[in-house]
Design a protein around this nucleic acid. Sequence first.
DNA 1: AGGTTTCGTTAGAAGCTATCACGGCGCCTG
DNA 2: CAGGCGCCGTGATAGCTTCTAACGAAACCT
Lengths: 221, 221
Amino acid sequence: MPEKDPTTPRERYRTQVRAEVKEHAWEQIAESGASALSLNAIAKRMGMSGPALYRYFAGRDELITELIHDAYRSLADALGAASASGADVPGLAHALRGWALEDPHRYFLVYGTPVPGYHAPDEITAIASEMMALLLDAYAALVPDGAATPFGTHLEEHRGWADGHAAPPAALHRALSFWTRLHGVLSLELAGHFTGMGFDPALLFAAELDDLLERGGRSTT
Amino acid sequence: MPEKDPTTPRERYRTQVRAEVKEHAWEQIAESGASALSLNAIAKRMGMSGPALYRYFAGRDELITELIHDAYRSLADALGAASASGADVPGLAHALRGWALEDPHRYFLVYGTPVPGYHAPDEITAIASEMMALLLDAYAALVPDGAATPFGTHLEEHRGWADGHAAPPAALHRALSFWTRLHGVLSLELAGHFTGMGFDPALLFAAELDDLLERGGRSTT
DNA sequence: AGGTTTCGTTAGAAGCTATCACGGCGCCTG
DNA sequence: CAGGCGCCGTGATAGCTTCTAACGAAACCT
């Protein structure tokens, strides 16, 4: 017999339905993208009629916001798992690319074209800085101390986003480059801008990663 | 008195209306993004009723496709103008950033989240390779011959996208890095992922550009 | 067992894309 | 210059969407 559960049956049912809605939402996004996500279609696929879903989500916007949150959480978990099993900088890069290729639409939910009115809630910026902390950890273990670049000194005066992390400015700079460069390659690859060009995007990604390492990680001699 | 014009009055009227529709579309995109673009709203703003626009555009998709085309054209022209007035690699980078900041939504129309079913027509890939040619020109004038990177040799076997350009493989590699890295910074900046972090995105862009140059352009001693 | 809360329904308003049939104006030609 | 062909804009209509409102029924808690 089940242990005493502080959650009422109604609550459990509610969260279960919400999860099922999200599941259908992800399927629909995977086939047609987030812009084509339809509450009506989800409801019909679940065997109930349109407005029923408004008992569970305030509207389309709230559902999408929650999907974005879950996507962020999923990415942070993927990077966290890699980091926990001892991944270094290239390990994190590999985890990032794996996560991106696993579901391109999910990647674009996080890093794609922003919705005009949307402003990220604190919960999401917290996840973002959680990922940044992972990256800074990996770079702090790698960077010697770093010749101060002009941008590095600028960062030293604006390191609030590092959230008290003790990484040297050179590591901050490297982490930012890691982020922007790999996003650059991944974004263009997933958006299909490389299709028809013939070369292997994986090799371009690897080349960018090599460049990132050659430049920032010469301390582990 | 006007010179003899091979275009009939009807044709002129037609192209004029089409241009006006696009103008309103750009305004609407600038305030609410491309996903919120509404033929109906445009028609009303122009003082005519909904279905009238279907005389000028087959549908919403055709209008958006044409806006994307115009955006590509605009970017290629911006880069072309810079190139024509003697801009080198950093000059092209500056032109790119200027164009991007001028209208972020237009940037995302080109490089943002792709629409699921959409496949770029030949006309657009032609513009893309036109821009790539500009970039390759600038790099060919800069790169010595380049120590062959592994990815460089891979590119040598898959250089179809360079469209017969005589640039050495190192230049191809550098041009690709230019593209992906600057897109990485710009994309994250325009999407607002740097807001609240405190540092100046322009300096990060400049730092990435410096890195791009330091590595690829040491021939101009 | 009764009362309250929550669920799912149908109905409806407002918006959108897109198609159709119709009337009228404008352009080109005879 | 007048006739006729063709294009333009309209209203009506179908079908889709989000989202609100009111109602009945079911399930939960006391």
